[in-house]
């Protein structure tokens, strides 16, 4: 038998669990090979030293501890047991150095989470400039509807002057609305009617003027007025109402 074959079997040979034939081969090899003999002696010395450890006696009060635990656990409800279990584990973790940092990090995370929740609950709704309009739950033809509704309210029958492709991808995310005041069947000097484009940041640009004021000078003021207007979706209790837009115009002075 070769050393390579004998060496891995020495442990089993030592425990006397090999089949008789292999055991005889190993024992013959050990008689001839100093190196394997040395390994075998090493094994038996390991065994001797381990065996010398012999059993550690259990302390007498282990019995009391076990009975105490059994009695307590049988008496307590599962809720108490669960809580104690968690407390025991937690106290173990808490006594370790280093866990302090973990606890602190956890606290920081919880605090910032709380902050985010609170602020998102109390701040008003802001339009997300980059989000597609669909995210706001507007119907695809929302801008069209707004424009049409506004024009109905203002008494304008149709957008006769200009055809706009409402479902055009380029402008579908824009709000169109009619802006003007006191539109009547007999236009006065300062009547104007316009289609504005309100982009998603809420700033307005004149898209198409439907009806000019007779006074050309008024047009400049009108431009100033329309660009200072801000639009936002209406909201109630922090919820967006997709059927309404709110227009905010700061007061502008018209000087002649």
């Amino acid at each position: 038998m070769l050393c390579e074959k004998a060496l891995p079997l020495l442990s089993e040979y030592f425990d006397d669990v090999l089949d008789p034939q292999t055991a005889i081969q190993i024992s013959q090899h050990l008689g001839q090979c100093i190196r394997c003999r040395r390994e075998f002696d090493g094994l038996s010395s390991v065994h001797k030293r381990l065996q010398a450890l012999h059993r550690v006696a259990a302390p007498a009060y282990l019995n009391s501890l076990v009975r105490h635990k059994i009695e307590k656990r049988t008496r307590d409800s599962w809720r108490v047991r669960l809580r104690e279990d968690i407390e025991r584990r937690w106290s173990k973790i808490r006594t370790l150095e280093g866990m302090w940092y973990v606890t602190r990090a956890l606290g920081t995370v919880m605090a910032s989470l709380f902050f985010v929740l609170i602020t998102s609950a109390i701040t008003p709704y802001y339009m997300n400039v980059n989000a597609p309009v669909r995210d706001l739950n507007f119907p695809p033809d929302y801008s069209h509807q707004v424009a049409v509704n506004l024009m109905k309210k203002l008494g304008i029958p149709t957008l006769a002057q200009r055809q706009i492709a409402w479902r055009d991808a380029a402008i579908s995310d824009l709000y169109f609305s009619q802006f003007g005041e006191a539109i009547s069947s007999t236009p006065k000097d300062d009547d104007f009617s316009v289609v504005t484009r309100i982009d998603r940041s809420g700033s307005a640009q004149i898209q198409n003027v439907l009806q000019y004021p007779a006074d050309e000078n008024l047009l400049n003021n009108f431009n100033a007025m329309i660009t200072t207007a801000r639009w936002r979706p209406a909201s109630r209790n922090g919820q967006v109402i997709s059927s309404h837009l709110v227009c905010m115009v700061s007061k502008i002075s018209v000087d002649n």
Binding site: L53, R55, V56, A57, A58, P59, L62, N63
Partner: peptide, 11 residues
């Protein structure tokens, strides 16, 4: 079995 258990676990 108490000393058996305790000893094994201790080792």
């Amino acid at each position: 079995y108490s000393s058996m258990v305790f000893s094994l676990v201790y080792q």
